[in-house]
Amino acid sequence: MLKYQIFFGTIVLLIILKKFFAFKRKEIKGSKFFLFLIFWLSVFLAIIFPEETNKIARFFNITRGADFFIYISIMVIFYLLFKIYQRLENIEGNITKIVREIALLKKEEDK
């Protein structure tokens, strides 16, 4: 096993352990933990068996496994950005509702 595999493999295992304890403490839902586990186990396997990723990549007509992972990562990042943007918009909207309610209630009180 190469040094980078030990280094990154350990980090991924620590991330999985951290989430596992959070799941035990019921801080995250089972379905979310399951998705999280699938994702990070895939990353772990890709680190330990890098040659295997080439096979998956070739299945999608991509030459190298590393390229395949970069494409997947870009897609995931864009998806997450979109989700964060949506959540931010919701929060902004909720703040406006609260501020408006306060303004209208205060006016009622002043009458």
Binding site: I95, T96, V99, R100, A103, L104, K106, K107
Partner: peptide
């Protein structure tokens, strides 16, 4: 009739 937003929320709001 004077109303006040406690923090800035923008023209549309």
């Amino acid at each position: 009739f004077l109303l006040r937003h406690v923090v800035n929320r923008g023209k549309g709001a």
